[in-house]
Simulated assay, not measured.
Amino acid sequence: MAVKLHRCPATWAKMSRHPCWRVQQALDEMGVEYEIVKAPWPLRSRRTAVIEGTGQRAVPAIELEDGTWYREDSAEMARAIRAGRLGSSA
């Protein structure tokens, strides 16, 4: 089973400053298998899985295979992924 990348539904937005793309690109570069879960937009209150998992409404968020969640600023998430720290208390 792959990790789940909870991200905004704008999967076409592939700009380096877009938070969701920044994290998705890092996952791609590191060869991490993931499933995209498009979070509801614009009503962030409907992001129930993300809210339950992270206590926040913001995406991107990563749901790991063991059921734990990882959510930080997207730049920090990308750094952690590229450093190989995803899943090890990133």
Rank of each mutant, 00 (worst) to 15 (best):
E29A: 15
E29Y: 08
I62V: 09
W69C: 05
A49W: 05
T54D: 00
A26M: 06
E63A: 03
E29M: 09
I51D: 00
L43D: 13
W21E: 11
Q25S: 14
R7D: 00
A61H: 08
R85Q: 12
A13Q: 15
R82S: 07
R7M: 13
A13C: 14
A90M: 11
R22G: 09
E29F: 10
T11W: 07
G55I: 04
W69A: 04
V59W: 06
K4P: 04
K38N: 14
M15E: 15
L86H: 03
E65H: 08
K4D: 09
Y70E: 06
A80N: 14
V50M: 07
P19T: 12
A90Y: 13
A2T: 15
V23N: 02
I51S: 02
A10C: 11
R71F: 04
G67K: 01
R44V: 01
E76Y: 10
Y34C: 06
S88T: 12
G67Q: 04
H18K: 09
G87H: 04
R47I: 01
A75V: 13
L5T: 09
P40V: 02
L86Q: 07
A49R: 11
T54V: 01
G67N: 04
D66I: 05
M15T: 14
R46Y: 06
M30R: 15
A78R: 04
K38S: 11
K38C: 13
A80P: 15
P60G: 03
E63R: 07
I62N: 06
S16T: 08
G84Y: 05
Q25M: 09
A90T: 09
A61E: 10
I36H: 05
I51P: 02
A49E: 13
R79A: 11
A83I: 10
G55S: 05
D66M: 02
R44C: 03
I81S: 00
H18F: 14
S89E: 14
L86G: 06
E33Y: 00
E65F: 02
E72I: 03
A83L: 09
A39W: 05
L5V: 12
H18G: 07
V3Q: 04
A2M: 08
G67P: 00
R46A: 12
K38Q: 15
A90V: 06
R79V: 14
P42Y: 02
G53F: 00
A39Y: 00
R79I: 14
R79D: 15
P60N: 01
G31W: 06
L43V: 14
A2I: 06
Q24V: 11
M15Y: 13
R46M: 13
A78P: 15
V3C: 08
H18V: 12
G87V: 02
I51Q: 05
R7F: 03
V37R: 06
G55E: 06
E65I: 06
D73F: 09
P42C: 03
A39K: 07
G53R: 01
R57M: 09
Q24P: 08
A80W: 03
I81D: 01
G55W: 05
P42L: 00
T68L: 05
E35R: 13
K4S: 10
E33L: 12
I81L: 03
D66P: 11
Q25E: 14
H18Q: 14
E33T: 12
V59H: 07
A58P: 10
K4V: 15
D28M: 11
G53D: 03
G31A: 02
K38F: 04
R7S: 10
A49K: 09
P40H: 04
C8E: 14
A90D: 14
L64C: 00
